[in-house]
Amino acid sequence: MRARPRRRGPLPGFGLSIGVTLAYLGLMVMIPLSTLVLGSTRLGLAEFWSAVSAPRALASYRLSIGAALLAALVNLGMGLLVAWVLERYRFPGRRLIDGLVDLPFALPTAVAGIALTTIYSSGGVIGRFLEPAGIKVAYTPLGVVVALTFVGLPFVVRTVQPVLRDLPAELEEAAASLGASRLQIVRRVLIPELLPAALTGFVLAFARGLGEYGSVIFIAGNMPMRSEITPLLIMIKLEQYDTGGATAIALVFLLASFAMLFALNRLAARREAHAVGA
Protein backbone atom coordinates (compact mmCIF):
# COMPACT_ATOMS: atom_id res chain seq x y z
CA MET A 1 0.00 0.00 0.00
CA ARG A 2 1.23 3.43 -0.91
CA ALA A 3 0.58 6.01 1.72
CA ARG A 4 -0.54 9.10 -0.13
CA PRO A 5 -2.74 11.17 2.11
CA ARG A 6 -4.19 14.26 0.41
CA ARG A 7 -1.70 14.05 -2.45
CA ARG A 8 -3.74 13.21 -5.54
CA GLY A 9 -0.89 13.54 -8.00
CA PRO A 10 1.48 16.20 -9.20
CA LEU A 11 -0.48 17.36 -12.26
CA PRO A 12 -2.42 20.63 -12.33
CA GLY A 13 -6.09 21.01 -13.19
CA PHE A 14 -7.68 18.76 -10.59
CA GLY A 15 -9.96 21.44 -9.21
CA LEU A 16 -11.04 22.73 -12.62
CA SER A 17 -11.63 19.34 -14.22
CA ILE A 18 -13.49 17.81 -11.31
CA GLY A 19 -15.49 21.01 -10.89
CA VAL A 20 -16.65 20.91 -14.52
CA THR A 21 -17.32 17.16 -14.27
CA LEU A 22 -19.36 17.32 -11.09
CA ALA A 23 -21.32 20.39 -12.19
CA TYR A 24 -22.25 18.82 -15.52
CA LEU A 25 -23.06 15.43 -14.03
CA GLY A 26 -25.13 17.09 -11.33
CA LEU A 27 -27.15 19.21 -13.74
CA MET A 28 -27.48 16.77 -16.61
CA VAL A 29 -27.61 13.39 -14.86
CA MET A 30 -28.26 13.53 -11.12
CA ILE A 31 -31.06 16.13 -11.08
CA PRO A 32 -33.03 14.43 -13.89
CA LEU A 33 -32.57 11.01 -12.27
CA SER A 34 -33.67 12.27 -8.87
CA THR A 35 -36.81 13.73 -10.48
CA LEU A 36 -37.76 10.23 -11.55
CA VAL A 37 -37.28 8.84 -8.05
CA LEU A 38 -39.11 11.79 -6.46
CA GLY A 39 -41.90 11.59 -9.00
CA SER A 40 -42.59 7.95 -8.18
CA THR A 41 -42.56 8.53 -4.42
CA ARG A 42 -45.37 11.03 -4.95
CA LEU A 43 -47.49 8.29 -6.46
CA GLY A 44 -48.28 6.41 -3.29
CA LEU A 45 -47.63 2.74 -2.83
CA ALA A 46 -50.98 1.43 -4.06
CA GLU A 47 -50.94 3.42 -7.27
CA PHE A 48 -47.27 2.58 -7.86
CA TRP A 49 -47.94 -1.11 -7.36
CA SER A 50 -51.00 -1.22 -9.60
CA ALA A 51 -49.11 0.51 -12.42
CA VAL A 52 -46.07 -1.72 -12.08
CA SER A 53 -47.96 -5.01 -11.73
CA ALA A 54 -50.75 -4.46 -14.28
CA PRO A 55 -51.12 -7.48 -16.62
CA ARG A 56 -50.09 -5.38 -19.61
CA ALA A 57 -46.94 -4.25 -17.79
CA LEU A 58 -46.11 -7.81 -16.72
CA ALA A 59 -46.52 -9.06 -20.29
CA SER A 60 -44.16 -6.34 -21.49
CA TYR A 61 -41.51 -7.28 -18.90
CA ARG A 62 -41.78 -10.91 -19.97
CA LEU A 63 -41.24 -9.99 -23.61
CA SER A 64 -38.48 -7.46 -22.96
CA ILE A 65 -36.54 -9.72 -20.61
CA GLY A 66 -37.16 -12.90 -22.61
CA ALA A 67 -36.26 -11.43 -25.98
CA ALA A 68 -33.20 -9.61 -24.60
CA LEU A 69 -32.06 -12.84 -22.92
CA LEU A 70 -32.53 -14.92 -26.06
CA ALA A 71 -30.77 -12.35 -28.23
CA ALA A 72 -27.90 -12.11 -25.75
CA LEU A 73 -27.60 -15.92 -25.74
CA VAL A 74 -27.44 -15.99 -29.54
CA ASN A 75 -24.79 -13.28 -29.37
CA LEU A 76 -22.86 -15.17 -26.69
CA GLY A 77 -22.48 -18.20 -28.94
CA MET A 78 -22.06 -16.38 -32.24
CA GLY A 79 -19.88 -13.71 -30.64
CA LEU A 80 -17.43 -16.34 -29.40
CA LEU A 81 -17.40 -17.91 -32.87
CA VAL A 82 -16.91 -14.58 -34.66
CA ALA A 83 -14.17 -13.47 -32.24
CA TRP A 84 -12.42 -16.82 -32.71
CA VAL A 85 -12.61 -16.72 -36.50
CA LEU A 86 -11.46 -13.08 -36.67
CA GLU A 87 -8.52 -13.61 -34.30
CA ARG A 88 -7.30 -17.06 -35.28
CA TYR A 89 -7.86 -17.43 -39.02
CA ARG A 90 -6.71 -15.44 -41.99
CA PHE A 91 -9.04 -15.07 -44.95
CA PRO A 92 -9.71 -12.41 -47.57
CA GLY A 93 -11.86 -9.53 -46.30
CA ARG A 94 -11.09 -10.26 -42.65
CA ARG A 95 -10.11 -6.67 -41.81
CA LEU A 96 -13.21 -5.29 -43.51
CA ILE A 97 -15.49 -7.66 -41.64
CA ASP A 98 -13.71 -6.91 -38.38
CA GLY A 99 -14.48 -3.22 -38.91
CA LEU A 100 -18.08 -3.96 -39.83
CA VAL A 101 -18.76 -5.67 -36.49
CA ASP A 102 -19.20 -2.23 -34.89
CA LEU A 103 -21.98 -1.28 -37.32
CA PRO A 104 -24.77 -1.71 -34.73
CA PHE A 105 -22.99 0.83 -32.50
CA ALA A 106 -22.83 3.38 -35.31
CA LEU A 107 -26.07 2.84 -37.21
CA PRO A 108 -29.05 4.82 -35.87
CA THR A 109 -31.51 2.39 -34.35
CA ALA A 110 -34.45 3.62 -36.42
CA VAL A 111 -32.54 2.83 -39.61
CA ALA A 112 -31.74 -0.65 -38.35
CA GLY A 113 -35.39 -1.07 -37.43
CA ILE A 114 -36.85 -0.25 -40.83
CA ALA A 115 -34.14 -2.23 -42.66
CA LEU A 116 -34.70 -5.37 -40.59
CA THR A 117 -38.48 -5.05 -40.91
CA THR A 118 -38.19 -4.80 -44.69
CA ILE A 119 -35.93 -7.85 -44.81
CA TYR A 120 -38.16 -10.05 -42.65
CA SER A 121 -41.63 -8.90 -43.74
CA SER A 122 -43.56 -11.31 -45.97
CA GLY A 123 -42.24 -9.82 -49.22
CA GLY A 124 -38.71 -9.27 -47.95
CA VAL A 125 -35.45 -10.93 -48.96
CA ILE A 126 -35.60 -13.43 -46.10
CA GLY A 127 -39.25 -13.21 -45.09
CA ARG A 128 -40.18 -14.49 -48.55
CA PHE A 129 -38.45 -17.80 -47.77
CA LEU A 130 -39.50 -18.09 -44.14
CA GLU A 131 -43.19 -17.46 -44.73
CA PRO A 132 -43.88 -20.68 -46.72
CA ALA A 133 -42.06 -22.58 -43.97
CA GLY A 134 -44.57 -21.16 -41.49
CA ILE A 135 -42.06 -18.94 -39.70
CA LYS A 136 -43.20 -15.38 -39.16
CA VAL A 137 -40.55 -12.96 -37.93
CA ALA A 138 -41.80 -9.45 -38.64
CA TYR A 139 -44.59 -8.24 -36.33
CA THR A 140 -44.06 -11.13 -33.87
CA PRO A 141 -41.98 -11.57 -30.69
CA LEU A 142 -39.41 -13.37 -32.86
CA GLY A 143 -38.89 -10.08 -34.67
CA VAL A 144 -37.98 -8.48 -31.35
CA VAL A 145 -35.30 -11.15 -30.86
CA VAL A 146 -33.92 -10.50 -34.36
CA ALA A 147 -33.71 -6.73 -33.74
CA LEU A 148 -32.05 -7.20 -30.35
CA THR A 149 -29.58 -9.69 -31.83
CA PHE A 150 -28.53 -6.99 -34.30
CA VAL A 151 -28.26 -4.35 -31.60
CA GLY A 152 -26.22 -6.54 -29.21
CA LEU A 153 -23.99 -8.17 -31.80
CA PRO A 154 -20.73 -6.27 -31.16
CA PHE A 155 -20.58 -6.71 -27.37
CA VAL A 156 -19.38 -10.32 -26.95
CA VAL A 157 -17.10 -10.09 -30.02
CA ARG A 158 -15.40 -6.97 -28.70
CA THR A 159 -14.97 -8.22 -25.12
CA VAL A 160 -13.61 -11.63 -26.16
CA GLN A 161 -11.28 -10.49 -28.96
CA PRO A 162 -8.58 -8.81 -26.82
CA VAL A 163 -8.51 -11.74 -24.37
CA LEU A 164 -8.12 -14.20 -27.22
CA ARG A 165 -5.36 -12.06 -28.73
CA ASP A 166 -3.38 -11.92 -25.47
CA LEU A 167 -3.78 -15.58 -24.59
CA PRO A 168 -0.26 -17.02 -24.44
CA ALA A 169 0.33 -19.79 -26.98
CA GLU A 170 2.16 -21.75 -24.26
CA LEU A 171 -1.16 -22.47 -22.59
CA GLU A 172 -2.44 -24.49 -25.52
CA GLU A 173 0.97 -25.94 -26.29
CA ALA A 174 1.35 -27.20 -22.75
CA ALA A 175 -2.05 -28.85 -22.89
CA ALA A 176 -1.21 -30.42 -26.25
CA SER A 177 2.15 -31.69 -25.03
CA LEU A 178 0.39 -33.31 -22.09
CA GLY A 179 -1.69 -35.24 -24.58
CA ALA A 180 -4.91 -33.26 -24.67
CA SER A 181 -6.95 -33.50 -27.85
CA ARG A 182 -7.95 -30.32 -29.68
CA LEU A 183 -11.51 -30.60 -28.38
CA GLN A 184 -10.26 -31.09 -24.83
CA ILE A 185 -8.07 -28.01 -25.16
CA VAL A 186 -11.00 -25.95 -26.35
CA ARG A 187 -13.24 -27.21 -23.57
CA ARG A 188 -10.80 -27.29 -20.67
CA VAL A 189 -8.35 -24.49 -21.52
CA LEU A 190 -9.81 -21.99 -23.94
CA ILE A 191 -13.44 -21.76 -22.83
CA PRO A 192 -12.59 -21.19 -19.13
CA GLU A 193 -10.12 -18.47 -20.12
CA LEU A 194 -12.62 -16.71 -22.37
CA LEU A 195 -15.69 -17.15 -20.20
CA PRO A 196 -15.37 -14.09 -17.91
CA ALA A 197 -14.95 -11.76 -20.90
CA ALA A 198 -17.76 -13.49 -22.78
CA LEU A 199 -20.05 -13.15 -19.75
CA THR A 200 -19.29 -9.43 -19.52
CA GLY A 201 -20.24 -9.09 -23.19
CA PHE A 202 -23.36 -11.14 -22.56
CA VAL A 203 -24.53 -8.88 -19.72
CA LEU A 204 -23.74 -5.77 -21.78
CA ALA A 205 -25.75 -7.10 -24.72
CA PHE A 206 -28.62 -8.08 -22.42
CA ALA A 207 -28.69 -4.66 -20.74
CA ARG A 208 -28.61 -2.90 -24.09
CA GLY A 209 -31.39 -5.11 -25.42
CA LEU A 210 -33.57 -4.53 -22.38
CA GLY A 211 -33.69 -0.77 -22.92
CA GLU A 212 -33.64 -0.77 -26.72
CA TYR A 213 -36.48 1.04 -28.44
CA GLY A 214 -35.76 2.34 -31.94
CA SER A 215 -34.85 -0.86 -33.73
CA VAL A 216 -37.62 -2.88 -32.06
CA ILE A 217 -40.78 -0.83 -32.51
CA PHE A 218 -40.80 -1.18 -36.29
CA ILE A 219 -40.42 -4.94 -36.39
CA ALA A 220 -42.38 -5.86 -33.24
CA GLY A 221 -45.93 -5.16 -34.39
CA ASN A 222 -46.54 -3.65 -30.95
CA MET A 223 -49.63 -5.61 -29.95
CA PRO A 224 -50.44 -5.12 -26.25
CA MET A 225 -49.93 -8.29 -24.20
CA ARG A 226 -48.14 -9.97 -27.09
CA SER A 227 -45.42 -7.98 -28.82
CA GLU A 228 -45.19 -4.79 -26.81
CA ILE A 229 -41.82 -4.07 -25.16
CA THR A 230 -41.58 -2.18 -21.87
CA PRO A 231 -39.94 0.98 -23.30
CA LEU A 232 -42.84 1.25 -25.74
CA LEU A 233 -45.34 0.85 -22.90
CA ILE A 234 -43.65 3.75 -21.07
CA MET A 235 -43.95 5.79 -24.26
CA ILE A 236 -47.64 4.92 -24.70
CA LYS A 237 -48.47 5.77 -21.08
CA LEU A 238 -46.76 9.12 -21.53
CA GLU A 239 -48.72 9.84 -24.71
CA GLN A 240 -51.95 9.01 -22.84
CA TYR A 241 -50.98 11.57 -20.16
CA ASP A 242 -50.53 8.78 -17.62
CA THR A 243 -47.28 10.31 -16.41
CA GLY A 244 -47.53 8.52 -13.05
CA GLY A 245 -47.78 5.09 -14.66
CA ALA A 246 -44.91 5.87 -17.02
CA THR A 247 -42.77 7.07 -14.10
CA ALA A 248 -43.47 3.96 -12.02
CA ILE A 249 -42.56 1.52 -14.80
CA ALA A 250 -39.53 3.62 -15.75
CA LEU A 251 -38.29 3.46 -12.16
CA VAL A 252 -38.55 -0.34 -12.10
CA PHE A 253 -36.67 -0.42 -15.37
CA LEU A 254 -34.00 1.98 -14.13
CA LEU A 255 -33.42 -0.08 -10.99
CA ALA A 256 -33.07 -3.21 -13.13
CA SER A 257 -30.42 -1.55 -15.30
CA PHE A 258 -28.54 -0.29 -12.25
CA ALA A 259 -28.56 -3.80 -10.81
CA MET A 260 -26.98 -4.94 -14.04
CA LEU A 261 -24.40 -2.18 -13.93
CA PHE A 262 -23.55 -3.38 -10.43
CA ALA A 263 -23.24 -6.98 -11.68
CA LEU A 264 -20.94 -5.77 -14.44
CA ASN A 265 -18.71 -3.95 -11.97
CA ARG A 266 -18.50 -7.11 -9.88
CA LEU A 267 -17.61 -9.10 -13.01
CA ALA A 268 -14.92 -6.58 -13.90
CA ALA A 269 -13.49 -6.76 -10.38
CA ARG A 270 -13.47 -10.56 -10.59
CA ARG A 271 -11.66 -10.39 -13.92
CA GLU A 272 -9.08 -8.01 -12.53
CA ALA A 273 -8.50 -10.23 -9.52
CA HIS A 274 -8.25 -13.24 -11.84
CA ALA A 275 -5.70 -11.44 -14.03
CA VAL A 276 -3.59 -10.54 -11.00
CA GLY A 277 -3.80 -14.08 -9.69
CA ALA A 278 -2.78 -15.62 -13.00
Binding site: L33, T35, M260
Partner: peptide, 21 residues
Protein backbone atom coordinates in the same frame (compact mmCIF):
# COMPACT_ATOMS: atom_id res chain seq x y z
CA UNK B 1 -19.44 4.77 -12.81
CA UNK B 2 -21.43 8.01 -12.68
CA UNK B 3 -19.87 9.19 -15.95
CA UNK B 4 -20.96 5.92 -17.58
CA UNK B 5 -24.44 6.00 -16.05
CA UNK B 6 -26.37 7.43 -19.04
CA UNK B 7 -25.30 4.36 -21.06
CA UNK B 8 -27.30 2.09 -18.81
CA UNK B 9 -30.48 4.16 -18.95
CA UNK B 10 -32.96 3.14 -21.63
CA UNK B 11 -33.33 5.89 -24.27
CA UNK B 12 -37.04 6.19 -23.58
CA UNK B 13 -36.40 6.62 -19.85
CA UNK B 14 -33.75 9.24 -20.66
CA UNK B 15 -36.32 11.25 -22.57
CA UNK B 16 -38.88 10.75 -19.82
CA UNK B 17 -36.48 12.30 -17.29
CA UNK B 18 -36.62 15.60 -19.11
CA UNK B 19 -40.38 15.46 -19.57
CA UNK B 20 -40.69 15.00 -15.80
CA UNK B 21 -38.35 17.90 -15.19
Amino acid sequence: TLIDLPFSVSPVVSGLLFVLL
